[in-house]
Amino acid sequence: MPQNVIQVENLKKNYGRLAAVDGISFAVKKNEVFGLLGENGAGKTTTLEIIEGLRKPSAGKISVLGHNLKAGINSVKEKIGVQLQSSAYFNFLTLSEILDLFGSFYPRQLEPSGLLKMVGLEDKAGSYVGKLSGGQRQRFSIVASLVNDPDIVFLDEPTTGLDPLARRNLWGVISKIKEQGKTVILTTHYMEEAEILCDRIAIMEKGKIIAIGDTHKLIESAQKPFKLNFYARISQNCLKELQKLGEIINILGKSNHYEMKLKTQANLNRALRLVQKVEPESLTVGRANLEDLFIELTGKTIQE
């Protein structure tokens, strides 16, 4: 059983009457990628910033790497690395100068050249941050959180605002960090990202954790784990038959494109036979994903 590197118990954070974080408890295990998933304002960043020592909790107990956060904040800061949401760096220092400077704040420091190489920015060592593209800047921001060779790395929405290619590139960086034996705790509102990257996730809504567990097990726990997707012209009768077997929706804007979510294998089999009879143009069978689970739990999708 791997040890817990972060332990959060009954954490609360109030801003006036608003409970931004409303009594949450969770643990993060050593060397896992743990994701806090939820829409904007769910309390993900606040939770992260409390653990990083940037905000004071209204109530609750937090321990990081065996230190009580309140008493041992300085020992904790030496062993964690933090990437803040949409943060900038000094404008007139080069990348390697910034890494060198930040490294000098810690008792243990990694070489800037090795760090830049890790994220493919070795050619940019002498450039200013302002000259980097969005994806490069984000990679730099992540690698800047590794200057002290931390045990735990906090990444707050590391891929927000990036194009799909740059996002995938960053996923590679994050998995490299995990390979080095570090623990990663990240926030995201991209379902696909959480599903691919995170060993475990906690889904947050309105300051509470509404589901937590191993990513694959959570998805499997969806009430309607089977999915059927097809293009076909179907009669009203057929539609009624299908509605008895599971939830069917007409994909927006396309009159003959449908998606079904079903509870059991038996219902899936029956639905398949019904659809095959009308000779569909296209028919695919799949499993529920994290987004389906999220919709099931919260009744909504996340809008950017």
């Binding site: 300085n74 030496e78 933090v82 803040l84 949409s86 943060s87 900038a88 760096y89 704040f105």
Partner: peptide, 13 residues
């Protein structure tokens, strides 16, 4: 505004 101060606070400096 650029969160540089905040980033400094996350370090032991």
């Amino acid at each position: 505004e650029d969160k540089i101060l905040k980033r400094i606070v996350t370090t032991p400096l």
